[in-house]
């Protein structure tokens, strides 16, 4: 009885995660420029990954309570992968957005652009000893 309820919860979480991942692909096709595509590509994949990882952790805990020795290892490693995704995904999006703005891509249809016209700051000066 309990295991069937856990199975249904796992299926619902998987469905929500896959829906948001599909939304990321669709948004990547429909939006007009780089910045709005980054909105779709970053937020939706991170949120979908949270739900899919949650379902996998739940299934691993269920396997562990049923006596399989792989279950706990599966749950712990999936939590590690989730933390890696949560830290790296927005930072990568930030790097791409900054590179796009410095290489001269303008936001389409922007009503205001405070960063416009500022000279690209030179990258932080290297230490003198580094380029010997």
């Amino acid at each position: 009885m309990l295991s069937e309820i856990v199975d249904i919860i796992v299926y619902i979480l998987l469905a929500i995660g896959v829906f948001f991942n599909l939304l990321a692909g669709l948004g990547l096709l429909r939006f007009p420029d780089v910045y709005t595509r980054l909105h779709a590509g970053t937020k939706c994949t991170t949120f979908g990954a949270i739900f899919i990882c949650g379902s996998i952790i739940l299934l691993g805990l269920k396997m562990w309570f049923q006596g399989s020795s792989d279950g706990s290892v599966l749950a712990i490693h999936t939590a590690g992968a989730l933390i890696a995704i949560l830290i790296t995904n927005p930072t990568g999006a930030h790097a791409i957005a900054r590179a796009a703005h410095r290489s001269g891509v303008k936001p389409v249809g922007a009503v205001v652009d405070d960063l416009e016209g500022k000279p690209a700051r030179k990258s932080a000066p290297m230490k003198k000893g580094a380029d010997k």
């Binding site: 780089v34 595509r37 590509g41 994949t45 899919i52 290892v73 992968a81 995704i85 590179a99």
Partner: peptide, 29 residues
């Protein structure tokens, strides 16, 4: 070029999620 990089970044995240689902489907760590 930044558009293509955004596409590649999204593909990377989706491949990671697919690997996780395949791992739980075959019960291998």
């Amino acid at each position: 070029a930044p558009d293509r990089v955004v596409g590649l970044d999204t593909i990377n995240t989706l491949v990671i999620v697919g690997m996780l689902v395949f791992g739980i489907a075959t019960r291998s760590v």
